[in-house]
Simulated scan of single mutants.
Amino acid sequence: MDVKQITYASSSSLVITTSSRFRKGLEMISKDYSTVCSYIQFKSGRRWKYDLFLARDPVPVKCPVAGKFNFTQRGEKDLLLQTRILGGVTSAPWDNIYCKENISDFSVCDKDQKEIWIDVNYCITVDAYGRQVDIYTDPDYKLKCIGYWKENVKSYLITYDELDSYSKYRCWVYQRADLHRVMMSQSVGPSCNLDQTVDADNITMGAAVSLDMMVYEREHDRCPMYFDDGSNPYKTPGSDLHVFRGGKKVS
């Protein structure tokens, strides 16, 4: 995702150029990518079009949004996230589980926080010891995060789902509304529409579904929250860790 193709049409010819992701439109004091490399900085009068080049076999990266969220969704009826069985029906029936409450769950809880699990009808019932009752059900969607950045005051995330029959790549626009709330919208296809926002929920804005997510975590869940708006693409992995050295003991 380090290369973009910039295409524009003039009155006499069609010009196609290739530039690096960090190309600057104007000389500015700030090196902030999301501010310098913005559409409004290219004041040539042409309508610029940005195309993302994605790897065929992408390597996942740490997701910019992590934690356990209870979400509600809005969007086109045929494009909403739906319950499905990954890998097909099981060879034998599972144990009968009585579930008192079901929610729509969005979780990024793996050790490296590189995979999104979405379960539209997730059982959150726990036993007398606070442990999860339903330990058999698989999520409906498993999405790998393969890249994210911030541009034009909007944060973008690209995910990869090898089981998606329509488009394995999806573009998300995400935003943190407050301390416990995150909003996201998923694109119809692999491209990021310029009109797509976190509230977009129809195909005219290039979005399939919009999610409104609230943080929740049970007693035995091990799912720390994390958020990165992608404003610093130069940050090296692990730079978000802060190690506090112990001082001298005071008697």
Rank of each mutant, 00 (worst) to 15 (best):
Ser38Lys: 10
Lys77Ile: 10
Ile6Tyr: 09
Val182Asn: 01
Thr137Cys: 02
Glu151His: 14
Leu80Ile: 09
Tyr122Phe: 12
Leu79Asn: 09
Asn202Ile: 01
Arg56Tyr: 11
Leu52Glu: 15
Ser210Ile: 05
Pro233Phe: 03
Met183Leu: 11
Thr72Met: 06
Val209Arg: 03
Ile116Glu: 01
Ser251Gln: 09
Gln82Gly: 07
Thr72Tyr: 03
Lys114Leu: 03
Ala55Phe: 05
Asp138Val: 08
Leu86Met: 08
Ile6Val: 15
Arg56Asn: 10
Asp138Ala: 14
Arg47Ser: 15
Leu81Met: 10
Ser231Lys: 10
Tyr174His: 00
Tyr166Glu: 14
Leu26His: 10
Thr7Arg: 13
Leu79Cys: 06
Ala207Gln: 01
Ala92Arg: 11
Gln186Gly: 06
Tyr226Leu: 02
Tyr148Gln: 04
Leu80Pro: 11
Gly189Lys: 12
Tyr169Cys: 00
Lys142Glu: 07
Cys192Val: 02
Asp199Val: 05
Tyr166Asn: 12
Lys142Trp: 00
Asn193Ala: 14
Lys24Val: 13
Asp138Tyr: 13
Tyr141Asp: 07
Asn102His: 13
Arg74Val: 08
Val126Cys: 05
Ile118His: 04
Ser44Gly: 15
Thr125Arg: 01
Asp2Thr: 10
Ile85Ser: 08
Met183Asp: 14
Val250Met: 10
Trp172Lys: 00
Ser12Glu: 12
Tyr129Leu: 13
Ala177Thr: 12
Lys144Gly: 03
Gln41Thr: 15
Asp228Val: 08
Ile40Leu: 06
Ala9Pro: 02
Pro224Val: 04
Ser10Met: 10
Cys99Ser: 01
Phe53Thr: 13
Asn102Ile: 05
Asp78Trp: 09
Val126Trp: 01
Asn193Asp: 15
Ala55Lys: 09
Lys62His: 06
Lys154Glu: 09
Asp32Glu: 15
Val198Pro: 02
Val120Asp: 02
Ser44Asp: 15
Gln132Tyr: 00
Trp149Gly: 03
Gln113Asp: 02
Ile118Lys: 01
Trp94Lys: 08
Leu194Trp: 09
Ser11Val: 12
Ser185Ile: 02
Lys235Ala: 15
Leu54Gln: 05
Asn102Ala: 05
Asp78Cys: 07
Tyr33Lys: 08
Tyr174Ile: 00
Lys248Ala: 07
His220Cys: 03
Gly75Pro: 06
Glu115Met: 11
Tyr129Gly: 11
Gly247Tyr: 05
Arg245Gly: 12
Gly238Gln: 04
Lys49Pro: 02
Val65Gly: 00
Trp94Tyr: 11
Gly230Trp: 04
Ala55Leu: 14
Lys4Met: 15
Cys99Lys: 01
Pro224Arg: 01
Ile124Ser: 05
Val188Tyr: 10
Leu143Phe: 12
Phe227Thr: 04
Tyr174Ser: 00
Lys43His: 06
Thr204Ile: 09
Pro60Trp: 03
Ser13Pro: 04
Thr125Met: 00
Tyr174Met: 00
Glu219Asp: 11
Asn70Pro: 07
Asn70Thr: 08
Tyr50Cys: 07
Ile124Asp: 07
Leu81Arg: 05
Pro224Phe: 05
Lys49Arg: 13
Tyr160Phe: 15
Cys37Glu: 12
Tyr166His: 10
Asp199Thr: 12
Gln196Cys: 04
Arg170Cys: 00
Leu179Trp: 07
Leu179His: 11
Thr197Ile: 00
Lys248Gln: 08
Pro224Gly: 02
Trp94Ala: 14
Tyr39Thr: 14
Tyr136Gly: 00
Met225Tyr: 13
Val250Tyr: 09
Glu76Gly: 07
Arg176Cys: 04
Ala9His: 13
Cys123Glu: 01
Trp117Gly: 07
Ser210Phe: 05
Thr204Phe: 13
